[in-house]
Protein backbone atom coordinates (compact mmCIF):
# COMPACT_ATOMS: atom_id res chain seq x y z
CA UNK A 1 0.00 0.00 0.00
CA UNK A 2 2.79 2.37 0.90
CA UNK A 3 4.43 1.68 -2.40
CA UNK A 4 1.20 2.49 -4.20
CA UNK A 5 0.92 5.84 -2.44
CA UNK A 6 4.47 6.70 -3.45
CA UNK A 7 3.68 5.84 -7.05
CA UNK A 8 0.56 8.01 -7.06
CA UNK A 9 2.50 10.84 -5.47
CA UNK A 10 5.34 10.72 -7.96
CA UNK A 11 2.97 10.41 -10.89
CA UNK A 12 0.84 13.38 -9.89
CA UNK A 13 3.96 15.39 -9.08
CA UNK A 14 5.27 14.65 -12.56
CA UNK A 15 1.97 15.66 -14.12
CA UNK A 16 1.94 18.97 -12.25
CA UNK A 17 5.56 19.59 -13.19
CA UNK A 18 4.81 18.94 -16.86
CA UNK A 19 1.76 21.20 -16.64
CA UNK A 20 3.82 24.05 -15.20
CA UNK A 21 6.47 23.70 -17.88
CA UNK A 22 3.93 23.40 -20.68
CA UNK A 23 2.08 26.46 -19.38
CA UNK A 24 5.30 28.44 -19.28
CA UNK A 25 6.21 27.47 -22.82
CA UNK A 26 2.73 28.34 -24.04
CA UNK A 27 2.87 31.69 -22.25
CA UNK A 28 6.10 32.63 -24.00
CA UNK A 29 5.69 31.01 -27.39
CA UNK A 30 2.02 31.44 -28.26
CA UNK A 31 1.21 33.84 -31.10
CA UNK A 32 -2.16 34.87 -29.77
CA UNK A 33 -2.19 37.12 -26.71
CA UNK A 34 -5.06 35.29 -25.06
CA UNK A 35 -3.22 32.01 -25.51
CA UNK A 36 -0.22 33.52 -23.72
CA UNK A 37 -2.57 34.54 -20.94
CA UNK A 38 -4.01 31.05 -20.76
CA UNK A 39 -0.50 29.59 -20.66
CA UNK A 40 0.30 31.82 -17.71
CA UNK A 41 -2.82 30.68 -15.88
CA UNK A 42 -1.95 27.04 -16.52
CA UNK A 43 1.62 27.57 -15.30
CA UNK A 44 0.48 29.39 -12.15
CA UNK A 45 -2.02 26.67 -11.30
CA UNK A 46 0.79 24.18 -11.87
CA UNK A 47 2.96 26.09 -9.40
CA UNK A 48 0.10 25.91 -6.91
CA UNK A 49 0.05 22.16 -7.47
CA UNK A 50 3.77 22.03 -6.73
CA UNK A 51 3.21 23.86 -3.44
CA UNK A 52 0.50 21.37 -2.60
CA UNK A 53 2.77 18.45 -3.32
CA UNK A 54 5.49 20.02 -1.22
CA UNK A 55 3.22 19.91 1.79
CA UNK A 56 1.65 23.34 2.03
CA UNK A 57 -1.95 23.43 0.79
CA UNK A 58 -2.31 26.87 2.37
CA UNK A 59 0.35 28.43 0.14
CA UNK A 60 -1.07 26.51 -2.82
CA UNK A 61 -4.53 27.97 -2.30
CA UNK A 62 -3.09 31.44 -1.75
CA UNK A 63 -1.26 31.00 -5.04
CA UNK A 64 -4.51 30.14 -6.83
CA UNK A 65 -6.42 32.91 -5.12
CA UNK A 66 -3.90 35.70 -5.57
CA UNK A 67 -2.16 34.84 -8.81
CA UNK A 68 -4.92 33.13 -10.76
CA UNK A 69 -7.83 34.86 -9.09
CA UNK A 70 -6.52 38.38 -8.74
CA UNK A 71 -3.39 39.01 -10.80
CA UNK A 72 -4.49 37.08 -13.87
CA UNK A 73 -7.94 38.59 -13.72
CA UNK A 74 -6.43 42.05 -13.54
CA UNK A 75 -4.23 41.22 -16.53
CA UNK A 76 -7.27 39.87 -18.33
CA UNK A 77 -9.05 43.12 -17.60
CA UNK A 78 -6.14 44.95 -19.18
CA UNK A 79 -6.15 42.57 -22.14
CA UNK A 80 -9.80 43.13 -22.79
CA UNK A 81 -9.18 46.86 -23.03
CA UNK A 82 -6.61 46.40 -25.79
CA UNK A 83 -7.47 46.17 -29.42
CA UNK A 84 -7.29 42.79 -31.03
CA UNK A 85 -3.55 43.05 -30.73
CA UNK A 86 -0.81 40.61 -30.04
CA UNK A 87 -1.17 38.58 -33.20
CA UNK A 88 2.04 39.85 -34.72
CA UNK A 89 3.87 36.95 -33.10
CA UNK A 90 7.34 36.75 -31.63
CA UNK A 91 9.95 39.39 -32.08
CA UNK A 92 13.54 38.32 -32.82
CA UNK A 93 15.59 37.87 -29.67
CA UNK A 94 18.07 40.50 -28.60
CA UNK A 95 20.95 40.08 -26.13
CA UNK A 96 18.79 41.75 -23.49
CA UNK A 97 16.58 38.66 -23.56
CA UNK A 98 19.36 36.82 -21.76
CA UNK A 99 18.74 38.78 -18.56
CA UNK A 100 15.43 37.11 -17.64
CA UNK A 101 17.05 33.76 -18.37
CA UNK A 102 20.27 34.19 -16.44
CA UNK A 103 18.93 36.08 -13.43
CA UNK A 104 16.32 33.56 -12.21
CA UNK A 105 18.64 30.70 -13.06
CA UNK A 106 21.28 32.24 -10.83
CA UNK A 107 18.75 32.79 -8.06
CA UNK A 108 17.57 29.21 -8.33
CA UNK A 109 21.13 27.91 -8.23
CA UNK A 110 21.95 30.01 -5.17
CA UNK A 111 18.83 28.78 -3.38
CA UNK A 112 19.56 25.18 -4.18
CA UNK A 113 23.14 25.55 -3.01
CA UNK A 114 21.99 27.11 0.23
CA UNK A 115 19.53 24.30 0.84
CA UNK A 116 21.81 21.48 -0.25
CA UNK A 117 22.99 20.64 3.25
CA UNK A 118 19.43 19.79 4.40
CA UNK A 119 18.48 16.14 4.62
CA UNK A 120 16.15 14.60 2.02
CA UNK A 121 12.87 12.86 2.76
CA UNK A 122 10.57 10.84 0.52
CA UNK A 123 7.21 12.58 0.73
CA UNK A 124 7.07 16.03 2.33
CA UNK A 125 5.33 16.46 5.65
CA UNK A 126 2.30 18.73 5.80
CA UNK A 127 3.18 21.91 7.68
CA UNK A 128 1.15 23.59 10.35
CA UNK A 129 -0.27 26.77 8.80
CA UNK A 130 -0.48 28.74 12.02
CA UNK A 131 3.33 28.76 12.16
CA UNK A 132 3.28 30.99 9.08
CA UNK A 133 1.20 33.56 10.91
CA UNK A 134 3.31 33.46 14.06
CA UNK A 135 6.49 33.90 12.07
CA UNK A 136 5.10 36.72 9.95
CA UNK A 137 4.02 38.65 13.04
CA UNK A 138 7.05 37.67 15.11
CA UNK A 139 10.43 36.91 13.68
CA UNK A 140 9.76 38.36 10.22
CA UNK A 141 7.65 41.32 11.30
CA UNK A 142 10.02 43.89 9.82
CA UNK A 143 10.14 42.50 6.25
CA UNK A 144 6.40 41.96 6.44
CA UNK A 145 5.85 45.61 7.33
CA UNK A 146 8.27 46.76 4.64
CA UNK A 147 6.31 44.80 2.04
CA UNK A 148 3.01 46.24 3.23
CA UNK A 149 4.44 49.77 3.08
CA UNK A 150 5.65 49.06 -0.44
CA UNK A 151 2.18 47.86 -1.46
CA UNK A 152 0.54 50.90 0.14
CA UNK A 153 2.90 53.14 -1.79
CA UNK A 154 2.00 51.32 -4.99
CA UNK A 155 -1.71 51.78 -4.34
CA UNK A 156 -1.31 55.47 -3.52
CA UNK A 157 0.85 55.89 -6.60
CA UNK A 158 -1.75 54.24 -8.81
CA UNK A 159 -4.52 56.40 -7.40
CA UNK A 160 -2.53 59.60 -7.82
CA UNK A 161 -1.56 58.71 -11.38
CA UNK A 162 -5.21 58.10 -12.20
CA UNK A 163 -6.24 61.35 -10.50
CA UNK A 164 -3.59 63.44 -12.29
CA UNK A 165 -4.67 62.12 -15.66
CA UNK A 166 -8.31 62.79 -14.88
CA UNK A 167 -7.46 66.30 -13.74
CA UNK A 168 -5.61 66.96 -16.97
CA UNK A 169 -8.58 65.73 -18.95
CA UNK A 170 -11.13 67.73 -17.01
CA UNK A 171 -9.16 70.97 -17.07
CA UNK A 172 -8.21 72.27 -13.65
CA UNK A 173 -10.90 70.84 -11.45
Amino acid sequence: MDNFIFKVYYLSFAIVLAQTAAGGVLAVAAKNLIHCFLGMVVALIGVAGLYYHLGSPFIALMQVMIYVGAVCVAIAFGLSLTRKAGEEGLKPLTPIALIPVVLPAGMLAATLKGLSHLEKTGIPRKLDESAIGWHLLGKYLFPFEIISVLLTMAVIGAVSVALIRRREQNGNI
Binding site: P57, F58, L61, M62, V64, M65, V68, G69, A70, V73, E129
Partner: peptide, 14 residues
Protein backbone atom coordinates in the same frame (compact mmCIF):
# COMPACT_ATOMS: atom_id res chain seq x y z
CA UNK B 1 -8.88 20.02 5.28
CA UNK B 2 -7.75 22.88 7.48
CA UNK B 3 -8.07 25.32 4.62
CA UNK B 4 -11.51 24.40 3.30
CA UNK B 5 -12.80 27.95 3.19
CA UNK B 6 -9.82 29.12 1.16
CA UNK B 7 -10.18 26.16 -1.18
CA UNK B 8 -13.79 26.97 -1.97
CA UNK B 9 -13.15 30.68 -2.47
CA UNK B 10 -10.01 30.20 -4.56
CA UNK B 11 -11.72 27.76 -6.89
CA UNK B 12 -14.83 29.89 -7.04
CA UNK B 13 -12.69 32.47 -8.82
CA UNK B 14 -12.01 30.17 -11.74
Amino acid sequence: TDTGLLLVIALGLL
